[in-house]
Design a protein around this nucleic acid. Structure first.
Lengths: 367, 367
DNA sequence: AATTGGTTCTGAACCGTTACGGTCACTTCA
DNA sequence: TGAAGTGACCGTAACGGTTCAGAACCAATT
C-alpha cells in the first residue's frame, strides 16, 4: 500500500465531498453529527477520509465558523518561564489548569514579554477568554486584553470597573499580620517588597512610590502595613522599605541586607512574599542573627517551602485562586457582571516571629 | 462621551472599510503593512477603528488565511494539572516556555484526559505543531497528534520512525547507576518504578510487563538495570520490582514497603524517579532503617528536592529538554527530518548510596 | 512624447469550515 | 387516499481575514 506520492494540496472537507459525490455538509456531519446521516454513508466518508489522508475538519476553520476557539488565554506579564519558577504562580496555574481540564478547554500561555511592549501576541491569541494574573495595572498587555471582545477575568488586580475579578483582601490580610507583630511588641520594623512598577528600582521606596505602586497586590499589602502601624503611632515614612525587581531568594537576601544597613535596630523584617522572606532569613543567618530571637521575619503566600521553614506568614489559597478564575471565565452563564470572588486568607503563626528582645512590657514601661 | 449603546454586531474589517469608503485591503494593510498606505490614511483608519470599537483583525480568521496559529500545543497525557505538580515536568515546561517565548509563540496546554479516550481536544487545537511529553506509546492522543498534518516533536518516547525526538539515553544512564551500585557491592536489590502502562497496577511487575512497558522511559531504565545486573550474574526475574501508578512520594513509600516485605534482605532500593525515592526514604526512616548504612537508595531525575536530600541519582537536564523540544519544533528550517536530540546525563553521587553492610570483599570471599 | 518608476489603493480569489433553511423520498396514520 | 411525519441529504451564505496582480496617478527620466 504505497503512500500517495503527490500530497500536493492536503485534502479538505470539500475535496473529500467531491470525491464522494456528496455535499460538504454531509462530510461535516459525518464528523460532528453522526445522527444526521446513515451509518453506512458515514462509514464510507470516514474510510475515504483515511484513504485520502484527510485529517478531519481543520480546527482553525472550525473556530472561525463556530466562533469558539476552545481555549482560554493566560496573560502574565513576566518572562513566560517565570510562571514555572514561582511556587505561588505554579499553584495558580495548577488551579487554572484544573478548571480548564474540567471544561475540556485548552490553556494558552500568551507570550507577553514585559521588556518589549509588544502587544501583538495578545492580538494573535485565538482564545475564548483571558485570565490575567498579577500584572501591573498600567501594563499595555492588560490594556490590549481588555480591548479584545472576549470575557476576561483578572486576578490580583484592582477593581477595573466592569471586569470579573478574583483575589484576596491583601490589605486586610497584611493588616492582620501587622497587628500580630504589633501585639508581640514590634514597633521598629523594616520591609522588603516585590517590584512596585514596571521600572526597576532595587532600592528603598518613598511613600509616594508605595502609594502609586502599579502592582495592586504589593500596594495593598504595604497599605495594610502602614495602616496598622499608624494606629500605634509609627510614622510610616521613617520605615525602611526595600524594593526588589526580581522575585528571588537572592533578592530577599540583598534587600534584607540593605534594610539592616539602614536601620540595624529593627526588631522585625516584614517581607511581602515568602520567597523574599526565605532569602532574607538566609541573609540573617549569614550575619549570625537568630530568628526569631534576634529578629522576627514574616512572609506572605504560604508556599510549601515556607511551611517547612516554619515561617510566620499569611496563607492564601493560590490553587483555589486559579481554579476560581477559570470557573468564572468558563461558567459564562453570564450572571450579573462584573462578578468578584474574594478568597479568604489565614494567618500562619510559624516560629519566625516572637516578641522583640526587649519585651513589650519592658518597652512600654521602660527600663 | 457616551458609549455606543447598540454594539449589535461587532465591527469587522469589512464594516470599517465601508465606513471609511476604502477597500478591505487597505484596512488590512493599516494593521499589517503600514508602509503600504499613506500615514494620513492609516491614522484615519486607526482612529475610526477606535471610534467603532473595532478590536483589530480577528486572530482566528487571520490564522485561517495565513495558516499560522502562532502557538504550539503541548500534549501530556495526564491530568493537565499534574504537570504543575511534578518538578521534572515543571522544569520541562519551563524550558519549553522559554523556547516559545524566544520565538514569540504561544504555548497551548491541550487537555488530554487519560481516563476518557477523548481525542477531540487534539483535533480542536489550533496550533502550528505539537510537543508530546512522556506519554505511553500506545496512547490514542499521541496517535491523534501524529495524524495531524503539523510538525511534531516527541520527548521521552521511543523512536517513532519519522518524528523529531528529544530525550536522554535512559537505558545507558540507568546502566551506569547500576554499575555504580554493583561496584559498591550490591547484588540483592529491589526496584520501585513508575507506571508502565495505562492500566493501574500497584503491585509487583513481571519481567514480561517490564519489557512490554508502554512508557518508553520506564522500560529503558528497567532494561538498563537488568542488563547491568545480568553481567554480575543476577537473575533479574528474581528481583522484586514494584510498580506504582501515581507518581507521588506516598507511592514511593508504599512501594518500598511492599518490596521490603517481599525481600527484607535487599541492600539497595533503586527507584526510577527522585519523587519515588524520596517517598521510599521516608518509609525507610519510618521503619528505623538508616540510609545508607542499612540500605542504599537511589533515584532518577536530579530534581532540587533530591539534591537537598543528598540523594544518589542521575541528573538529567529537564529544562534543556523542554527548550530543545521547543527549538526543534520552531526552528523548522526543515533540515533532514527526522532529527533527534539526545541530551547527556550525569551520575550524582549523593550520600544515600554506600557499600552494603557486608562489604563487597566479605560477600565475594565469604565469612 | 514616450518610458520608467514609485506610491497608493483596489478587486477578486481564497482559507476550510459550519449554520440555516430547505428538498425529497418514503413511511405512518386516520 | 391524503395529510402529516420522519430520516437523509443538500445549497447557499456566511465566518473575517490576507494576498496578489494590477489600476490609477503623478513625477522624473530618456
Amino acid at each position: 500500500m504505497a503512500r500517495s506520492m503527490h500530497v500536493r494540496r492536503p485534502a479538505t472537507l470539500a475535496s473529500l465531498a467531491a470525491e464522494l459525490g456528496v455535499s460538504r455538509t454531509t462530510v461535516s456531519n459525518a464528523y460532528n453529527r453522526p445522527d444526521q446521516l446513515s451509518p453506512e454513508l458515514r462509514r464510507r466518508v470516514l474510510e475515504t477520509a483515511r484513504r485520502l489522508g484527510y485529517p478531519g475538519p481543520d480546527p482553525v476553520a472550525r473556530s472561525l465558523r463556530t466562533r469558539k476557539a476552545g481555549a482560554v488565554g493566560l496573560l502574565l506579564t513576566e518572562n513566560l518561564s517565570y510562571a514555572f519558577r514561582d511556587p505561588a504562580a505554579i499553584g495558580f496555574l495548577e488551579g487554572l489548569a484544573l478548571a480548564c481540564e474540567d471544561a475540556g478547554t485548552g490553556l494558552l500561555l500568551v507570550p507577553a514579554n514585559p521588556e518589549r511592549e509588544d502587544v501583538a501576541a495578545v492580538h494573535r491569541a485565538g482564545v475564548d477568554g483571558f485570565v490575567v494574573y498579577s500584572v501591573p495595572d498600567d501594563d499595555p498587555h492588560l490594556a490590549a486584553v481588555l480591548e479584545r471582545p472576549v470575557p476576561t477575568v483578572v486576578c490580583d488586580q484592582p477593581d477595573l470597573g466592569n471586569v470579573d475579578r478574583v483575589g484576596i483582601d491583601d490589605q486586610a490580610a497584611m493588616h492582620a499580620l501587622a497587628q500580630h507583630l504589633i501585639s508581640l511588641g514590634h514597633r521598629r520594623v523594616g520591609v522588603v517588597c516585590m517590584r512596585l512598577a514596571r521600572d526597576r528600582n532595587d532600592d528603598f521606596v518613598t511613600p509616594d512610590r508605595q502609594q502609586a505602586a502599579h502592582f495592586h497586590v504589593q500596594r495593598a499589602r504595604l497599605a495594610g502595613l502602614a495602616q496598622a502601624f499608624a494606629t500605634v503611632g509609627v510614622d510610616w515614612a521613617t520605615v525602611p522599605v526595600a524594593e526588589r525587581f526580581d522575585h528571588t531568594m537572592a533578592s530577599g537576601a540583598s534587600a534584607a541586607a540593605q534594610v539592616l544597613e539602614r536601620d540595624p535596630q529593627i526588631t522585625a523584617l516584614i517581607c511581602t512574599s515568602d520567597i523574599l522572606a526565605l532569602g532574607a532569613m538566609a541573609e540573617l543567618q549569614r550575619r549570625g542573627l537568630r530568628v526569631p530571637v534576634d529578629i522576627t521575619v514574616t512572609g506572605f503566600d504560604g508556599i510549601r517551602e515556607a511551611e517547612q521553614a516554619g515561617l510566620t506568614t499569611v496563607r492564601q489559597p493560590v490553587l483555589e485562586k486559579g481554579r476560581a478564575a477559570g470557573k468564572l471565565l468558563l461558567d459564562s452563564a453570564e450572571r450579573t457582571r462584573p462578578r468578584a470572588v474574594t478568597l479568604s486568607t489565614e494567618l500562619v503563626q510559624g516560629i519566625t516571629a516572637a516578641p522583640p528582645r526587649g519585651t513589650a512590657e519592658e518597652r512600654w514601661f521602660g527600663p
